[in-house]
Design a protein around this nucleic acid. Structure first.
Length: 210
DNA sequence: GACCAGGCACATC
DNA sequence: GATGTGCATGGT
């Protein structure tokens, strides 16, 4: 499996090239984006983030002090805006209560312990936690998402009912624990998913992994 | 107008 | 542990 996952990566990279993830300027922007992009296209998330940027709210303490009502209005384009406003607030209150709002302090925490803590925040599940760890904090943690699962299943690398950690282990136990590799690999899988591995109309005949 | 998107929590069995 | 549902906008 080791060789196969490696081969897939090489093929994807050759075909698509670098994806330059995460498309954000700051660590905090990645974190906010990770929550906003839950079951939502990045295009919509961009609009929400731009709204926050324009009004200079894309900063921990300012966002923390923003009312739920105004926050929800800013992030409206990203959909599920009420629940996402709540989730952002939950994350921020965790950030301030545990790390005094200091992202560098958070980064210093042991990766596994931090993952557990993130998962205990209401609104942060495995994918969001891992996206924050990998893309914001540069920890070597593989991110699994719906595309990853669909692609691996279509190619019969996993069962359809495989669980998150099972899939994550497949990558983490068979690849070098390298932040750059994990970053690019997941981004490439998303790219492949968007372009070829659609839910209803997969383009398996022209899939670059064929 | 239907379908989908870089999920998650919660209820129920 | 599995399955079903609400959350909501914007692009195709």
């Amino acid at each position: 499996m080791n060789i196969k996952l490696d081969l897939i990566y090489k093929r994807l990279y050759r075909y698509f090239g670098p994806q330059h993830w995460w498309p954000a300027k700051t660590v905090f922007e990645v974190m906010v984006g990770a929550i906003l992009t839950q079951n939502t296209s990045w295009n919509n998330v961009k609009k929400a983030i731009d709204n926050l940027k324009k009004k200079k709210f894309l900063e921990p303490s300012r966002l923390y002090r923003l009312s739920h009502k105004r926050l929800a209005l800013f992030i409206k384009p990203a959909g599920y805006y009420n629940i996402k406003a709540k989730r952002l607030k939950e994350f921020l209150s965790f950030l301030f209560k545990s790390y005094k709002g200091n992202l560098r302090t958070m980064t210093r925490e042991d990766t596994q312990e931090l993952r557990e803590k993130l998962l205990s925040v209401n609104g942060i599940g495995q994918e969001t936690a891992d996206s924050i760890l990998l893309y914001a904090l540069k920890k070597p943690v593989f991110v699994v998402d719906a595309y990853t699962k669909r692609i691996l299943w279509r190619h019969r690398f996993i069962k359809e009912d495989s669980h998150y950690e099972e899939i994550q282990n497949l990558f983490m136990k068979n690849l070098k624990k390298d932040v750059r590799l994990f970053n690019e690999y997941h981004a490439l899988l998303v790219k492949l998913g968007k372009d070829f591995c659609l839910k209803r109309k997969p383009k398996c005949d022209i899939c670059p992994l064929k």
